[in-house]
Design a binder for these strands. Structure first.
Lengths: 234, 234
DNA sequence: CGGTGTGTTGAGTTTTTTCAAAATAGGTGG
DNA sequence: CCACCTATTTTGAAAAAACTCAACACACCG
């Protein structure tokens, strides 16, 4: 069905099956409804570095990541790049332009070899009518995203880099749970782009945090939080 | 500037009627459907300075502005305030939390004596089922808002104050059309809060723009753009 | 005509960036 | 497994951007 190249053929298949059920806007459906949606999806593979879509291109599909990683970034008016998010399996993109005639404003690039499932706009809209609960899920998802995005805007508008970095680290331990140690979800160049600063500043601030005894840098990517409260009181 | 004290008594009523038809998520409906929605709305008045909702409060209504102005702002983690938007008649707020159990993350305050129409969450959800086209409108509205918000985030993350201010001025002339002269939609204190900077910096940058011949400051609030291209090339 | 809130200007300071150079990690081919 | 290459990360020094605080100017209001 959708085996590409010479990957282990069952691997791709498995993750394609799995990916729909991972998606928050679909995972409440009955399995036969899910199957129906699955039939409408088209699996596509991208090699590391390939562009999935670019700003200015017509948007006409929803992309769901089955495996791999996708980097979503935007260019500002003056040409500077900002990392918006990194998609991991179960995440989706392309949704913004699905409900109105519209073009992409961001870029999507495969960070490693990546498989996605595509659903076309018309198929999706059919499903929205057939399974109205999806609309509510999407509305809920959108409003959550809006909250997040506005919160993020406020952070950029009012907090200095140090604070934004501290809040980011706090979120990382939080999602790691259990332990106070975690691996940064991206390299520092990307982290800088995500936090709207430079790699140098990230590096310096982390050293400051370390010197104050808030964190310990186990390795370039691995960090242990020693004093979360102190970190957040900065 | 705004009628104080001596409003005509039918004024409130009139604008209440009009407000629903101003709202982009309802204005496509037949007038009898609109009437039905109107019956479900409850008009409420707020005096200048009154709080409509605050962060942390349960969200259970959509608010549509019939007349007046509402200031929406957020507090960052470290307590600094950012102006998110100013609502004018026809705008609505409270929508974010309408599709999931949730609390407000922002504050809404009447900037002058203001009348709004409220629709409760349960009424609205009833209408969504009855008139499914509203869902699509809201989805479209949300995705537009998300684009705007993410674009805004990227600006804050990558552009310096000067550029953000220039882009803001450009948007102002754009919506003014016709002429290159316009009135700032808010005072400079609020503008600073909106652009994530201080009134002092706004003041200085405007003086810089003037000295470079990009703009002319007619009065404290009124600005004429002399060289838009120059302004945007900063 | 004061009074209050808003806007402007100046001086000094903090924060962040830039550019350059050195250190480190990770991957590849031998 | 090691040597080498490249990309990433760190550090330093200087410059740029923005903020703070304080003083003053201006506008609007009664």
């Amino acid at each position: 069905m959708y085996h590409r190249g010479n990957y282990r053929s069952d691997h791709t298949h498995e993750s394609h099956e799995a990916c729909i059920s991972l998606v928050p806007i679909f995972n409440h459906l009955e399995s036969d409804q899910m199957d129906e949606i699955m039939k409408a999806t088209k699996p596509v593979s991208y090699k590391k570095g390939e562009i999935i879509y670019r700003a200015g291109a017509q948007s006409n599909s929803l992309y769901i990541v089955s495996n791999g990683k996708i980097r979503i970034y935007r260019l500002s008016e003056s040409g500077k790049e900002q990392l918006v998010r990194i998609l991991i399996p179960g995440d989706f993109t392309g949704e913004l332009a699905l409900f109105r005639e519209s073009i992409h404003e961001s870029y999507a690039v495969a960070m490693e070899d990546t498989n996605v499932c595509m659903i076309t706009r018309s198929d999706l809209q059919e499903f929205l009518l057939k399974f109205p609960s999806i609309s509510l899920k999407i509305l809920s998802e959108f409003s959550k995203r809006l909250e997040t995005s506005e919160k993020q805007t406020t952070r950029f508008a009012t907090e200095k880099v140090e604070t934004r970095l501290a809040l980011f680290l706090a979120k990382c331990v939080d999602s790691g749970e259990k332990t106070t140690e975690f691996v940064l979800p991206m390299n520092k160049k990307n982290l800088a782009s995500y936090l709207g600063t430079t790699p140098e500043t990230i590096s310096r601030k982390l050293t400051d945090f370390k010197n104050h005894g808030y964190i310990k840098q186990i390795s370039h990517r691995k960090i242990r939080i020693l004093d979360l409260d102190g970190l957040l009181l900065i």
